[in-house]
Computed example of a mutant assay.
Amino acid sequence: MSDKDLEAKKRHHYVWAKYLTRWGHGSKNVFYTTKTGKIAHDSVRAIVADDYFYKTTTLTEMDVQVIKGFSRKSPDRLHKQHMSYLNDFLKIQQLQNFYRQSGAKDQQAEQYFHATQCNLLENLHSSHEKKALPVLAALADEQLDVLQDHQHMIEFMMFFGHQISRTKPFRDGLIRVQPRSTALEVAVADSMANAWWFISYMFGMSIGLSLYATRHEDKHALLVNDTRVPFITSDQPVVNVHSCVSETEFVAPEYADFFYPISPRIGYIICNSERFTPGRNEVDEATVIELNTKVAAQSMMHIIGDSEIAIHPFKKYIGQRYKKTPSGRAIV
Rank of each mutant, 00 (worst) to 15 (best):
N292I: 06
H302G: 03
P253C: 04
A49P: 00
F170P: 04
A140Q: 08
R45F: 01
T325G: 08
F276D: 11
F170Q: 08
S27P: 02
Q111Y: 01
L6F: 10
H13F: 06
L6H: 10
D5Y: 00
P253D: 05
D42E: 15
K316P: 04
K18M: 08
T182K: 08
W197A: 12
L124I: 15
D145R: 00
T248K: 05
R77C: 00
K323C: 02
K315C: 13
L78D: 02
N240A: 10
P278A: 05
A330P: 00
A115E: 10
V44D: 13
T34H: 02
M153R: 12
S200M: 06
D76Q: 10
P230Q: 03
D141V: 06
E61T: 04
I266V: 13
H114I: 03
L121V: 15
V186L: 13
T214C: 09
F159K: 05
P169Q: 08
H82N: 15
Q94I: 04
M158N: 14
I304Q: 06
F259I: 02
R176W: 00
A40T: 02
G24F: 02
L222T: 09
F53Y: 14
E142V: 01
S210R: 13
E247T: 13
K130I: 10
R100E: 15
C244H: 13
E274D: 15
S84L: 14
T58H: 11
Y201N: 06
P326D: 07
P278F: 02
A187S: 14
G279C: 07
R100P: 01
E308M: 11
Q94L: 07
M157A: 10
W197T: 14
L144H: 02
Q298A: 10
M202T: 12
D149P: 03
L120Y: 03
A310W: 06
I232Q: 09
L6C: 05
I164G: 03
N225G: 05
F89C: 03
D306L: 13
A109P: 10
W197M: 05
L59F: 13
V224H: 12
N272D: 15
V30C: 10
V186W: 13
V186P: 04
V238M: 06
I47W: 11
K28P: 03
S243L: 06
D172I: 02
E254W: 00
K18S: 10
Y85R: 01
S299D: 04
